[in-house]
Design a protein around this nucleic acid. Structure first.
Lengths: 243, 243
DNA sequence: GAGTGGTCTAGACCACTCA
DNA sequence: GAGTGGTCTAGACCACTCA
């Protein structure tokens, strides 16, 4: 049993929220596992159910927990459904969403360039693994990706054949290296495509491309992966409601 | 006094939420005006304060209301702080955010092209007003904008001198035409700049530009304004957190 | 000091899940 | 039928605002 340890000037629901958030970060429960019931939390911390609900509500809003009426409240496995990639409209004929195939062009150990070292919070020239791949839909290249990983955690990737695995890297990270991606930050800009990426994407040099950079972190907020993806701007449209 | 009219199968807090939301949409209270106190709402609709709070909480989250402890709960004036434009980094030397100046190049009555008519929900060739302007920061062009408005609501704009007004259009719409923008939807894509916009922005032809389209609506959800803005991609970076 | 929103309690009853 | 989250009540007391 843990105590509500944080600043006693904060409201109780905030302090319970912080405690649960820390425990999730420390992997006290695995993704998909249930946290204690609201009644149990209320008893354990001597709170009314309303106060417990307010703390849990906030964690549900933040995407850390997921409620299932009649079953319990569960630590949410990240879905990355809000990724900017979903605004690439690589529509199939039927219009349904597809995961593009992955074609690995290279995977090799390197020393981290400055930008990568900074992003992954490594020292300059730290050993890293770089994966270059294209994502294909119906055999046509739609995205060109470079993926950078710290060798210390991901060395095992060099000993397997990625071609035998599915197109999604995160399940492979978990299975092969025991590394779980919990959050990510993405940023988007646009550029004129250089010759190398133009070839990979089979588009004319200087076409506009959307460039998305993603930094993925584990539950302890350590950077796990930095990737940069190029995609043809013609297929991209991002939308947002404001007021 | 209004009744909680909606579907009785819905929870009470949802029905109060819907009622208040409708009243805000109907301009039952002006932006900046206070809605009834939580105690008053609880009495009027025979609800406990907890239920009232849950309804108001949701409206605060949606950005329709704003609480001020000790003062009341107020209908929020839209701020458009989540606009995609804030990701253009037109930094001043000091780094603070600036509103770019506006230089109106033309304002004229036209007949709506197809795309504009569709966006504004007008019939084809309906009378519209088009404003072309560039936004300048420190005398340098940073955005090129075309703004389309239905003549029926905005005819008065043709009789004033926009050069004497500030750089923000929405306060002018309100003052001169009595039209209040309540919401907007924005979408973003990237293109190679054409010759006309290249000249306006003083950048080389075929440079990558970010194109932002915005459809603004009033409280009744009627489309008020459609605009398309071009800005140099080099100054743009959009960021988002995902999980 | 009257009035506002902010926190919190100690439940009751309902809808849903699962053995 | 036992256990879960979902809704709702009828307050109490606190922090803040404003005349």
């Amino acid at each position: 049993m843990n105590a509500l340890s944080s600043d006693t000037r904060l409201p109780l629901y905030q302090r319970l929220h912080d405690l649960l958030s820390q425990q999730i970060a420390k992997n006290h429960w695995r993704p998909g596992e249930a946290i204690p019931t609201e009644a149990a939390l209320a008893t354990e911390y001597q709170l009314s159910t309303g106060t417990v609900r307010k703390a849990v509500d906030a964690l549900v809003n933040e995407g850390l927990l997921e409620r299932q009426q009649g079953r319990g409240t569960f630590v949410r496995r990240p879905h990355f459904q809000s990724s900017l990639f979903r605004f690439f409209r690589f529509q199939s004929a039927a219009g349904e969403r597809q995961v593009p195939e992955s074609c690995i062009l290279s995977i090799e150990p390197l020393f981290a360039p400055l930008k990568v070292a900074q992003s992954l919070a490594l020292s300059a020239d730290a050993p890293v693994i770089r994966i270059i791949r294209v994502r294909l839909l119906n055999g046509r290249p739609v995205l060109a990706e470079e993926v950078w990983l710290p060798s210390e955690r991901f060395g095992a990737l060099l000993n397997i054949d990625l071609a035998n695995e599915g197109p999604l890297l995160y399940p492979i990270y978990e299975k092969v290296c025991g590394q779980i991606v919990a959050y990510a930050e993405e940023s988007l800009t646009a550029e004129s495509v250089d010759e190398g990426h133009a070839q990979l994407l089979q588009i004319p040099v200087n076409s506009p491309v959307i460039v998305i950079e993603r930094l993925a972190r584990d539950y302890a907020d350590s950077p796990l992966e930095w990737r940069r993806s190029h995609g043809h701007a013609e297929f991209f449209r991002y939308s947002v409601n404001i007021r």
